[in-house]
């Protein structure tokens, strides 16, 4: 049973924490959201030799009691408001929860829902009445009931039934200070004893001092897993870089994964616009001059596309801002401020 194992600590990468704090400190009011990541069991540094069989059973039993698990927070979703996936009693709204975690935790065992967070300005750094209730409801849900049941991921995941019991609380000091201070505290909600256990936070940062950390840390990016290297796992790293054009080795793969690969390949091809890797050979030799012109033309088109995209983003941002203003007005109207 691994559904209420104690955590030793909670690890979060510097950029993830910074981005979380930024989201909170730039919002006008209080915010909440979900935390994604995975649970790992680092190899203990002090492995003992089994020279004394009589004592080894005792020492191993002691070791199993002491917490050795680490929860790694790799990404988050910030709702931008409070009570985004629960009601005033702290009971979960499952459909809202699924909506919030869309795109995260579905099919990636490295990115499962492992907890939630609240950022509330100028309040004590202690869980509130409602936060207790939300954590209690959230950590009593197993992945199945939360509709994250992807059989393959559960079989791969090291701790499939580990509940989303991590709670991160962000705040700022009660009194105004000259120095901007961001307070945060992490807890693990223990189902068996119904208590919040404060846990230390390991901020994994970039730099030589943290090289050791990164050895055990597996960073994640949102970039999709490209099927380029799917053909042969036993092959050398250099061969993995080759693009699968002749799909003769994929025969053993199921039809489903073939389709998936084909779909991703099509996506790649449409971006390449006929400039597939095979043509790279033309960069040398007699056709090089023509080819360079073609490539430059492609780059020009790409830049134009990017500019168009930037303009689209700008327009939609303006719309979002306008809507946000409208919302504030409506809210003020409801609370009788107008």
């Amino acid at each position: 049973m691994d559904n209420d194992l104690p955590l030793e600590k909670i690890a979060i990468s510097g950029p993830t924490l910074a981005s979380l704090i930024q989201r909170f400190s730039s919002s006008n009011g209080d915010v909440d959201g979900l935390l994604f990541g995975h649970v790992t069991q680092p190899t203990p540094a002090n492995l003992l030799d089994d020279d004394f069989p009589s004592s080894s059973s005792i020492s191993s039993s002691i070791r199993s009691d002491s917490p050795t698990l680490v929860a790694n927070i790799t990404s988050f979703f910030c709702s931008g408001t409070l009570s985004s996936f629960y009601d005033s009693l702290g009971q979960l709204n499952i459909s809202a929860l699924n909506r919030c975690s869309l795109g995260n935790g579905k099919d990636d065992q490295q990115q499962r829902l492992i907890g939630w967070f609240v950022g509330r300005r100028r309040t004590p750094l202690r869980p509130s009445m409602r936060e207790f209730s939300v954590s209690s409801s959230l950590s009593s849900k197993t992945l199945e009931t939360l509709n994250f049941s992807q059989n393959e991921s559960i079989s791969i995941s090291p701790f499939p039934n580990f509940p989303p019991c991590v709670f991160l609380l962000l705040s700022s000091p009660l009194s105004d200070q000259l120095i901007h201070t961001h307070d945060y505290r992490a807890f693990q909600f223990r189902r068996s004893s119904e208590v919040f256990e404060p846990k230390s936070i390991d901020v994994i940062n970039i730099g030589p001092a943290f090289r050791g950390h990164y050895g055990a840390f597996s960073p994640n990016s949102q970039f999709p897993w490209l099927s380029c290297a799917m053909k042969d796992f036993s092959s050398s790293p250099s061969r993995e870089m080759e693009i699968v054009s002749e799909d003769d080795k994929g025969k053993e793969e199921s039809l489903l994964s073939l389709k998936k690969i084909a779909k991703e390949q099509r996506g790649l091809d449409s971006c390449a616009e006929g400039f597939e890797v095979g043509r790279l050979s033309k960069l040398v030799g007699s056709e090089a001059v023509n080819y360079t012109l073609e490539v430059e033309d492609l780059y020009g088109k790409m830049l134009a596309k990017l500019e168009g995209l930037a303009r689209l983003v700008e327009k939609s941002s303006a719309l979002v801002l306008e809507q946000e203003r409208c919302n504030i007005k409506l809210r003020n109207k409801v609370s009788g401020l107008e």
């Binding site: 006008n28 009011g29 209080d30 408001t81 409070l82 009570s83 005033s88 009693l89 702290g90 509330r120 309040t123 004590p124 202690r126 869980p127 509130s128 009445m129 409602r130 936060e131 207790f132 209730s133 209690s136 119904e194 208590v195 919040f196 809210r331 409801v334 609370s335």
Partner: peptide
């Protein structure tokens, strides 16, 4: 007791943070 409303969300009931000595006070349980 700290009563925490949310000016951005005036329709929602307030939340309460109890004093540090009463961290084990969980009204819902």
């Amino acid at each position: 007791w700290d009563v925490i409303y949310n000016a951005q969300n005036p329709l929602v009931a307030p939340d309460i943070v109890f004093s540090a000595a009463d961290e084990s006070f969980h009204p819902f349980s």
